[in-house]
Amino acid sequence: MSENHDEHITPYKTYVIIWLILMALTVITVYVAREIDLGSINLFVAMIIASIKATIVALFFMHLKYEDSITWVFALYPLFLLSLLIGLTSIDVFNRIVP
């Protein structure tokens, strides 16, 4: 794009580095889940790693890092709603008194 806005062009090298990081994280998540087996915190660890990967993809591959604040709002708000859906539904499902 032309000079009229602060369009950022990411160099090719960055993408390759990001890809290598993502590959490393994939190996780690497989290794942790299959070889170490942390039991009950397995889920927790796997989700943390997945979220790190997702954040990296969004920030760099999707250029969220260079977007304006309103894009950030509309990128993050759905995640908040999703947590609401899961959270408030769980409050119902796991507190029922079953006769």
Binding site: I91, D92, N95, R96, I97
Partner: peptide, 16 residues
């Protein structure tokens, strides 16, 4: 935040 008020008699938990 309010959807489950349609479910009060559907057997949802009292907490919810």
């Amino acid at each position: 935040f309010v959807w489950a008020h349609h479910l009060f008699v559907a057997g949802i938990s009292e907490t919810a």
